[in-house]
Amino acid sequence: MDRSADASSISPRRRSPGSRRSARASARSASPGRSTTGSLSGIPTDGAEPPRSLGRRALKALAARHGVRPSKALGQHFLADPNLARRIAVLAGVDRGDRVVEVGAGLGSLTVALAATGAEVLAVEFDRGVGAALREVAAYLPHVRVLEADALRVRWDRELEGGSWKMASNLPYNVAVPILFGLLERAPQVVDYVVMVQREVGERLAAWPTKQAYGAVSARLAYQADVSVLRRVAPSVFWPEPQVESVLLRITPREPPVSTLRDHLFPVVDEGFAQRRKTMRNALVRLGLSPDDAVRALEGCGLDPRVRAESLGLPEFACLAEAVFGRGPDRG
């Protein structure tokens, strides 16, 4: 997973004096320009061949060696299907020479598939016990860097250097949404995302007005990116198996389709969905308009005063935001 109290690295579990020297040598081999907030792996040992895939049996053996037990509290469901891992790499358009960030790298099944393309991979993992197992895998993958850190606190401007990046990740269920929005807001160098999330979450993220799943998070994401569902994913491809399906999403950042400032737009969106059974007239009153002014604002935007938030798209929310806050500075 990918949350931590800090971004400091830890040493592998004690095995022998020789293994401790190898760990120190690997740390010294990091290039000067790389961050020291995480562990840098990627030095093949003893001429061993890089792993081509990590299936369920290999993952369980790896976890056992490191005393890893999947944590329900951390939303840990490790991808255990090498075919799907390779498919995700294809869907993400990852190729030799690309830079890819993987958040919630876990035990490395997707990491191996991404590395096999010849891309440079930054594998971010929160759980320190899992991170030790991930470093074992990454030691055979020369273009993989392991960063043990909280993805919600990572300084992406420091970690994602060298131009544009892609993201391909099996995100932990319990923090998928804040991770995505954090990256969208703080990592403009990531130009395309293919991520796996819980189905219910994915459907909310990709929903459009009038759809049952449509909500504040849908409108917030539509403000800054195009979103599509690529496919459903069965629980059977994970270890341990979750109780729900997942989906693969493609998220492509772009300029907002409306000129209204987010600091004006998002409060109207959030208030509109705060009480879903209430009308937008009530939401505007809660934002400070008088009941009469709320009706005039809605009618001025061509809306029925009884309309609810789930029927509104970004242009309608933007019009109402301008009625509440006034028109912000032109993006022009």
Rank of each mutant, 00 (worst) to 15 (best):
L40P: 08
A27M: 05
T117V: 04
A115H: 08
Q224V: 15
L312A: 00
R204C: 05
E241Q: 15
L74T: 10
E322L: 03
D6W: 02
G162F: 04
I43D: 05
L289I: 08
I88W: 13
Y223F: 12
L205A: 00
S228Q: 13
R15H: 09
T260P: 10
A89I: 00
Y193R: 02
A123D: 06
T117G: 09
R14C: 10
A222E: 12
A105V: 02
L171D: 11
V103P: 03
G118C: 00
R99F: 08
Y140A: 15
E161W: 15
S35Y: 01
Y193L: 04
L183P: 00
R65I: 09
L230R: 11
L152D: 07
A119R: 03
N83A: 15
G326K: 08
P44K: 02
I179M: 00
A64N: 15
R277I: 07
V146G: 14
S259Y: 07
A123L: 03
G300C: 01
W165L: 13
S9T: 09
T111Q: 06
P305E: 05
L221W: 07
L122M: 02
V195W: 06
P51T: 04
E148Q: 08
P172Q: 14
K278A: 05
R262M: 06
G18S: 14
A85F: 04
R14W: 13
E49M: 15
A61F: 07
A63G: 06
R254G: 04
A294C: 11
D95H: 14
V190F: 10
V130D: 05
S290A: 06
F317D: 04
A92Q: 05
V324W: 00
S218A: 01
P178D: 10
G328Q: 12
A323M: 10
